[in-house]
């Protein structure tokens, strides 16, 4: 009984204003005047400034091609791989400038884990997929790995489905299971931030529901940023929502606020489905 009431109160609290766990920073990820170009001619992100709070779920919404993925990929510097990119402005994560020359990209990527739009399991066993990030970090202790596999798969709500075939190829999983496997894989080595790029775009409603449930659970531990085209999803899972349009961040606010009374007309038109 007490449990239910406790949950109710939390939910009510969420209704009014996003709760921030004790001591969590409101500007955990701090983006300042950030601009990004793939080619010199086309500016994909234009002077973005935003603060993303710690241990909350922030969703990025906006029409296709507005630069959501690009921004997300900047947080763990995946864009480094693309030749010819240029950027201006700064991004600080937990007070640290991520474009700092002295920063090791590998350790950054270990902390800021990205889950891609298309699940890309490695052609290895389920077990090896989950522990991949530990293996590359040189942690091969069997007992540790076993434990991590179980906690991560439980955390990704996949354990019950695969516990009997951990050593089968991950390529035999269904699309939804693969997506959850990539979440398990991402949370295995205790990251700080999870970047999810349309994690449910290829999934059926049941798998989507499972992943949404998961995101709500994950936010106690991680800072989550999710890109989504599904407005309901954004309202269901996120505390903060940022609306992007043509490379600019138009508006960012508590999710309830944005969906109830957006301050910009464009945002309103987008979320009410009048364009896009």
């Amino acid at each position: 009984m007490t449990n239910t009431t406790a949950e109710n109160t939390t939910e009510e609290a969420v209704e009014t204003a996003p709760t921030t766990p004790e001591g969590a920073k409101l500007d955990y990820i701090k983006v300042e005047d950030f601009s990004f170009n793939y080619t010199p001619e086309v500016r994909v992100l234009d002077k973005i400034t935003m603060d993303i709070p710690e241990k909350q779920v922030t969703s990025f919404i906006g029409p296709s091609g507005c630069g959501k993925t690009t921004l997300l990929r900047n947080f763990n510097r995946m864009n480094d791989l693309i030749p010819g990119i240029t950027h201006e402005g700064t991004i600080h994560i937990d007070g640290q400038e991520i474009f700092d020359k002295k920063l090791e990209v590998i350790s950054l990527r270990k902390r800021i884990r990205m889950i891609f739009q298309k699940a890309n399991p490695f052609p290895k066993s389920i077990y090896e997929n989950v522990v991949y990030s530990l293996r590359v970090a040189g942690r091969n202790n069997k007992a540790l790995l076993d434990e991590v596999v179980e906690t991560s798969l439980r955390g990704a709500a996949l354990w019950d489905e695969v516990k009997d075939r951990l050593h089968d190829s991950a390529l035999g999983l269904s699309g939804g299971q693969m997506q959850r496997l990539s979440i398990a894989h991402a949370i295995a080595n205790q990251p700080e931030v999870l970047l999810m790029d349309e994690p449910c775009s290829a999934l059926d409603p049941i798998a989507t529901a499972k992943i949404e449930e998961l995101i709500c659970k994950l936010k106690n531990k991680f800072t989550v940023i999710i890109v989504t085209h599904n407005m309901q999803q954004a309202t269901r899972v996120s505390d903060q929502t940022a609306y992007f349009y043509l490379g600019k961040m138009i508006e960012m606010n508590a999710t309830q606020e944005i969906f109830r009374n957006p301050s910009c007309e464009e945002t309103e038109r987008y979320i009410s489905g009048k364009f896009g």
Binding site: M78, I106, R109, N120, F122, P123, Y132, R135, S182
Partner: peptide, 23 residues
């Protein structure tokens, strides 16, 4: 070898050589 798999490996904190060698 699909780019996605390589990126997934790099995003997991693997170095370029680790990605080549393991994936």
């Amino acid at each position: 070898v699909p780019r996605g798999v390589r990126e997934a490996s790099l995003a997991a904190g693997a170095s370029k050589w680790q990605t080549i060698q393991r994936i």
